[in-house]
Amino acid sequence: MHEPVHLTGICHRYGRLPSLNGINLEFHPGTVTALVGGNGSGKSTLLGLLAGTLRPTSGVISGVPTNTALVPQHSTVPDLFPVTVRRTVSMGRWRARGLMRSLSRSDRGIVDQAMSCMGIADLADRTLGDLSGGQRQRTFIAQGLAQQADLLLLDEPLAAVDSTTVLMIDQAIRAEKASGTTVVIATHHWEQANTADQVIVLDRGQLATTTLTEQQELA
């Protein structure tokens, strides 16, 4: 099992605008952490720092595994882009193995399993533009699952999805936790946050509170 991820004295700015200030946190393998707070509180910025798509202005981030998956809140793929569900999910294996390597039989099996987990196996040959919002969200979460990452980052996974998708996402998160993955979720949904092992409340880029839920205290 990989080591915990540590953030020490993390600050971040977008130009002159501060987004995070003096953040000290740790994320342990086999746990789920929920990041909560209003818009502009720093949740997505923190996920970007963990994913390596952003760099801190100051401070140290350590223990981040090489294989990290980030599932953003909104896809950057245009609705009319002719990419299928299967190809989209397969991108998770390319990230795990390298873009220049063709997928093996094992990789294809992992892709099939991820699609089945998110209930989209029957949509494999449809393009993203043909999907509902919930189906698109499940597709991109399946892509993250297919990466089999040691650190899984989810940005507002329950935004504008139906109850079936909520249940599938919850089940997938539980399975990732059970496998030893470090899961960090940015969410506005307190029901989802309360099922996490650790709840972190951000307020205008600062750490307001950090709470261990009952299930983590009893672990």
Rank of each mutant, 00 (worst) to 15 (best):
V71A: 04
T164D: 15
T127P: 00
Q171R: 14
E191I: 04
D107K: 07
L123M: 11
V32C: 08
G119A: 09
I61W: 03
C11E: 12
R101Y: 14
R108S: 14
G205C: 04
R55Q: 13
L70T: 03
Q143Y: 07
A69I: 07
T164N: 14
A146Q: 03
I141V: 14
L54Q: 05
R136P: 02
T182R: 02
G59T: 06
V36L: 02
M91T: 09
R97D: 10
L70P: 01
L20V: 07
V184P: 02
T210Y: 02
A178E: 11
D122T: 14
T182G: 01
A208H: 13
T165K: 04
P56M: 06
I10E: 01
G63R: 06
N39L: 08
S104T: 15
G205S: 07
L153Q: 00
A96Q: 12
V161E: 00
V71M: 05
M1P: 06
T213W: 02
S44E: 01
G134S: 05
E214H: 13
L35I: 00
T68A: 05
I173R: 00
P65M: 07
I110E: 05
R95V: 15
T45K: 00
M168H: 11
W190T: 06
I169G: 04
S102Y: 11
M100W: 15
T164F: 13
A208G: 07
G9S: 08
Q143N: 09
